[in-house]
Nucleic acid binder design. Structure first.
Length: 515
RNA sequence: GAGCCCGUAGCUCAGCCGGCUAGAGCACUUGACUUUUAAUCAAGGGGUCCUGGGUUCGAGUCCCAGCGGGCUCACCA
């Protein structure tokens, strides 16, 4: 590999440090007693005299320096933020030997190097809270130059590191240089911990179920296929965990939930990544009406914990997560936004209606699919504030219980926010005979070439035959909820390492066979 | 999968209708400077113009193909 001039220089600096007896990658721990953000927030003084942080020890990256002869200012960035350093030659080199300042600090340290500093906090003439450095330690030398992003007093950013490809491929650089990116991931973490707290407080059990499954069930999607050598059998990366969580309800848990990765072998775009995080929860003796009330509390709680408000701005719109949310049946929603009542229509009439609405249809589409098309084309985009769409056609939903009063429908709801589906829930189907029938219907779809049709799962059916209590289940896409609460428009922005093509198209030989 | 756009220094980008040795700012190097803050001042180094073909006296620029990326649309619980 060809090294750039700057990379060669840094390697030379590394060697010079070693030649001076300074280990650029020391083994011993460095004691950190203070953090940039805390100092910025809590530093106090009286009559110009500093009161606290008079013995502070910080560690982080050197992010810039302004050398003025025998004294310098530098920027230290730790895990919490930045603080200015004041480094005076005669302070860090009290004796005759000025090498640490003249050579190590001024010549051999580069932007991006990790250093440890000890000293006291004061305020400069210009009013900046600054650490007056008494001791400086090299903690780790950086050999690769970091992009230098500068900000002026008004907050204007110069030479921003913004190329999406480079940001995702080298997320470590993105995180180092773009502080707002870190903020998104702090919020993502808060979201998940708030959700977990909400469920744990109600006594529901967090569980783990297999990610490697012999039968991929629980959703309509194409799976990733792999092979277990010892068992000599194909396995699938899970597209859903629904059928396993229901087995646990059969086994006697009253409430179980799992937050984990799902894998779908489908297209990628700004709302789809091949692996994504979902939360699914199942609670016994409940129905979908109870679940709607629960989700309102949950999303309101999460919005508050993550952003501090129930109102969140997304793409310039204010979205209010405070419940209760509007509930609208699928038929009523279509009537409201198209003026057409489709509740009594058969397949032929629906197909004609679609044509009138300029919706492209094909012959493979059944009644359920046609209704879904109308809904997707004409209604979804209008559902900006959190809205429950309830009662879906039975054809689209093989795992939901038939509606208690309306034939042809199932007890299902989806929560829409800003025109996008955020949550999906049912009164779960627990009639084993009905369930078998519905899965048989799916098999017939698969025979007709539907790659996404659900597979038969005899063990799951056996579990239902042992008896599953009435149960309500819910799934929430964590990535998309994170996008909403962080005002981000692509899923790549809420994943540390979104899926990308390899940088140099060099796939290992043995992996090329068997697609 | 389709359309549009992009790929030039470590980073952000300019480079016209094809025309001298390919440019700027930051970063980097050398020097000056003990309270600066996009520090400043002076001097300097740094390029596989994504790759491969083609047209041409001459290609960063035009054409073709490929690779990579972005946006939009389509597909997709």
């Amino acid at each position: 590999m060809q090294l750039s001039e700057q990379e060669l220089l840094r390697r030379e600096n590394l060697q010079k440090l070693r030649d001076m007896g300074i280990e650029p990658y020391p083994a011993e721990a460095f004691e950190v007693t203070a953090y940039a953000k805390k100092i910025q927030e809590e530093f106090q003084e009286e009559a110009g005299e500093p009161l606290n942080f008079q013995q502070a020890s910080l560690a982080g990256r050197l992010m810039g320096s302004r050398v003025m002869g025998k004294a310098s200012f530098a920027e230290l960035q730790d895990s919490t933020g930045r603080i200015q350093l004041y480094i005076a030659r005669d302070e860090i080199c009290p004796g005759e030997d000025k090498e640490l300042y003249n050579t190590v600090f001024k010549k051999l340290l580069d932007i991006g190097d990790f250093i440890g500093v000890k000293g006291f906090v004061f305020r400069t003439r210009m009013g900046e809270i600054t650490l007056h450095v008494k001791e400086l330690t090299v903690l780790s030398k950086a050999l690769h130059p970091l992009p230098v992003v500068k900000r002026d007093e008004e907050g204007n950013v110069y030479d921003a590191f913004t190329d999406p490809e480079q940001r995702y491929r080298q997320r470590y650089v993105d995180l180092t240089v773009n502080p707002h990116v870190k903020e998104i991931f702090f919020k993502r973490s808060k979201l998940i911990s708030a959700m977990r707290r909400f469920f744990d407080d109600r006594g529901w059990l967090e569980v783990e179920t297999p990610a490697l499954q012999p039968i991929h069930g629980g959703a309509a999607a194409r799976p990733f296929k792999t092979f277990h050598n010892t068992l000599e059998m194909p396995l699938y990366l899970r597209i859903a965990n629904e059928l396993y969580l229901k087995r646990l309800i059969v086994g006697g848990f009253e409430g179980v939930y799992e937050i984990g990765k799902m894998f779908r072998n489908e297209g990628m775009d700004r709302t789809h990544n091949p692996e994504f995080t979902s939360m699914e929860i199942y609670v016994a003796y409940k129905d979908y009406n109870w679940m709607m009330a629960m989700v309102e509390q949950l999303t309101e709680y999460i919005a508050l914990e993550v952003t501090g408000h129930t109102k969140v701005e997304y793409e310039g719109k204010m979205i209010d997560f405070a419940g209760p949310y509007r509930r609208l049946s699928m038929y009523d929603a279509i009537k409201e936004y198209t003026g057409v009542d489709i509740s009594e229509m058969d397949e032929t009439a629906l197909r004609a209606t679609c044509k009138k609405m300029d919706i492209t249809v094909d012959d493979s589409m059944g009644k359920g699919k046609l209704i879904d098309e109308i809904f997707g084309e004409k209604v979804e985009e209008h559902l900006i504030q959190p809205t429950y769409i309830i009662d879906y056609p039975v054809e689209m939903t093989p795992l939901a219980k038939k509606h208690r009063s309306q034939p042809g429908l199932v007890e299902r709801f989806e929560l829409f926010v800003n025109g996008k589906e955020i949550a999906n829930a049912y009164s779960e189907l627990n009639d084993p005979i009905d369930q078998r029938q519905r899965l048989m219907d799916q098999l017939r779809l698969a025979d007709r070439g539907d790659f996404e049709a659900m597979a038969m799962d005899e063990d799951f059916l056996r579990s239902l035959e042992y008896g599953m209590p009435p149960t309500s289940g819910l799934g929430i896409g964590i990535d998309r909820l994170t996008m909403l609460l962080t005002n981000q428009h692509s899923i790549q922005e809420v994943l540390f390492f979104p899926q990308m093509r390899p940088e140099k198209a060099e796939l290992p030989e043995q992996d090329k066979k068997e697609g």
